[in-house]
């Protein structure tokens, strides 16, 4: 049986359902290092660059990374060049990619989401916006505003008012009930939800017994969090009518199938890009093969099968 890998995410037409998670694949940096021609053979069906904020952020002190059991703890601290430099330096080059561009934005105050969204609204290179609401928030003493339903709704509403583009809100799992946050985002105008961001955690250096990360605590990603992510995708997609981008510990074609069956419309690969920056190429081939074996004609046919 012929498999048609094409997928839709709102108005975005995707060659297949696999995209990258923000902050795990830098096409401009990779293009300077890797022999592969990424601007011709881009491995993902859409590209999500690293999150940008209104002002440049230096990021957290090292160590920023620590590997844990089947997982990676990070505290990068949203290091980025700021949205103005992103628009001036990166956007023209990213516009040459053969796939839709999903810009990821964050702000330290809720009204910053509106300002960032407004700055990108007129840019044709940008197909959609993803709000990273796990940024440390000044109104919450540095806690992520994504932990608070009212601030989540406020940030989403301000971005919604500033742009007609497809609006994705990326939820943090570090809450008591992620459905409350999902509803708050959708009621405030989100078109789509990314589920999930990293899980709060920490690690100690086994020799010094001091915190392994410079920032003490960080976000856990990788296969260790896949069950957490799968549950969140399942609960949210069963309850709400917006498409969900599933992410958290995806390393294989089988993981993609599981996230689709749990209710995701598209699936993002994150930390696994660090094992192999071009993993998506073989993963998508294997996905097509698996769908053929299982008589699945399109990814859409599988979405929510586990419900």
């Amino acid at each position: 049986m012929a498999v048609n890998m094409e997928s839709s995410l709102g108005p975005l037409r995707l060659r297949h359902p696999v995209i990258n998670a923000s902050g795990t694949f830098d096409v401009l940096a990779a293009d300077r290092v890797l022999a592969a021609d990424l601007f011709t053979d881009f491995p993902f069906a859409a590209y999500v660059p690293k999150t940008v904020t209104l002002k440049p952020r230096e990021g957290n002190p090292p160590h920023r990374l620590y590997e844990t059991a089947a997982g990676l703890l990070n505290s990068i601290g949203l290091a980025n060049k700021g949205i103005e430099a992103f628009i001036a330096d990166d956007l023209p080059r990213l516009g040459r990619l053969p796939v839709p561009l999903i810009a990821s934005i964050a702000a330290e105050e809720t009204n910053g989401y509106g300002r960032c969204a407004g700055l990108l609204d007129g840019r044709d290179e940008v197909a959609a916006l993803e709000l990273n609401i796990s940024c440390p928030n000044v109104e919450l003493d540095g806690k992520a505003l994504g932990c608070d339903p009212f601030l989540t709704a406020s940030a989403t509403a301000q971005a919604r008012a500033a742009t007609g583009k497809f609006l994705i809100v990326k939820l943090t799992p570090n809450v008591t009930d992620i459905l409350v946050l999902a509803r708050a985002a959708v009621e405030a105008g989100a078109d789509c939800l990314s589920v999930i961001n990293t899980v709060h955690g920490m690690a100690l250096d086994p020799w010094t017994l001091r915190p392994a990360l410079g920032h003490v605590t960080g976000g856990l990603s990788g296969p260790a969090i896949k069950p957490v992510a799968l549950r969140a995708v399942y609960l949210i997609s069963r309850e709400l009518d917006v498409p969900v981008i599933g992410m958290g510990g995806v390393t294989s074609a089988n993981d993609v199938l599981e996230f689709l069956a749990a209710g995701a419309t598209a699936v993002a690969v994150g930390t696994a890009c660090f094992r192999d920056p071009l993993l998506a190429v073989s993963l998508v081939q294997e996905l097509e093969h698996q769908m053929e074996l299982r008589d699945i004609a399109t990814p859409g046919e599988l979405v929510g099968r586990a419900h």
Partner: peptide, 22 residues
């Protein structure tokens, strides 16, 4: 030497302080 994840400049994890920046 630094703790590294990607090796290709994607994760911004392996920073050192140089020239007044990470």
């Amino acid at each position: 030497a630094a703790h590294m994840a990607c090796g290709v400049g994607a994760c911004q994890g392996c920073v050192v302080r140089a020239g007044g920046e990470y």
